[in-house]
């Protein structure tokens, strides 16, 4: 079979094909985080109700709701939706290794705090929609109350109404697994009702 077309036309066709292929490539890459049914948000739909904390033990959850969960870490995950108002998350941070990470729906870790950062036994996070918070006020609240307080209050501005919070509680040795799980169960995640918001503002 011989190609009976001029070289210039052949080059034009190849270039056009590559440009079209590149456009398809870019579309797939950009759309993937939004449509993938395998992403963490979709995988957690069955095991984590909205605005509630779900406690996950990677050694017993089969199949794991999130891929590559560490067997020696206990997880508590809250899928949140701020459409009806802010969210409160209270969690113990008994040592430097415990951490609380906030994610966008697509898995970007936009806020992280660990036991070493707060030096307090527990932390109370108020997660609010970015558009409803005064940024200066947020900074004041974050800077305030240093030292080894019992409870540290922090307000976090979420970049979007939906996202995920993951509390990680490492289990140093198997003998501590039950103790870590019990401590983690003290954590909770709940929407703040109108009455609670009013009392906070007084």
């Amino acid at each position: 079979m011989s190609l009976n077309i001029p070289i210039s036309q052949l080059l034009f066709r190849i270039t056009t094909l590559i440009v079209f292929g590149a456009a398809v490539h870019i579309c797939i890459i950009l759309i993937m985080p939004h449509v993938s049914k395998g992403n963490a948000w979709s995988r957690l739909e069955d095991s984590a109700k909205l605005n509630e904390l779900a406690f996950l033990d990677p050694t017993t959850e089969r199949p794991s709701p999130i891929a590559f969960m560490a067997p020696d870490v206990r997880y508590a995950i809250c899928r949140y939706d701020l459409s009806n108002g802010p969210l409160q998350l209270r969690a113990p941070l008994p040592n430097d290794l415990w951490s609380i990470a906030l994610y966008s729906q697509h898995g970007e870790n936009y806020f992280l705090i660990s036991g070493r950062d707060v030096q307090s036994k527990a932390v109370n996070l108020l997660v609010v929609d970015d558009k409803t918070i005064d940024n200066e006020k947020q900074e004041e609240q974050n800077i305030g109350a240093p030292g080894k307080a019992e409870l540290r209050e922090i307000t976090v501005a979420a970049p979007a109404k939906t996202g995920m919070i993951v509390i990680r509680a490492p289990v140093p040795k198997p003998a501590f697994a039950a103790e870590v799980a019990t401590l983690l169960e003290q954590a909770f995640c709940r929407p703040i009702t109108f009455n609670q918001q009013a009392s906070r503002s007084q």
Binding site: I29, N39, S42, F68, H106, E108, N109, Y110
Partner: peptide, 26 residues
């Protein structure tokens, strides 16, 4: 992995795998 403003390939990789990594600075 896990960074805000991560490149689209990293975001797509993590989304497809269903992972939630802590930001790479930590």
């Amino acid at each position: 992995a896990g960074d805000v403003g991560a490149d689209p390939y990293t975001l797509a990789h993590m989304s497809r795998d269903g992972r939630l990594p802590i930001t790479s600075s930590n």
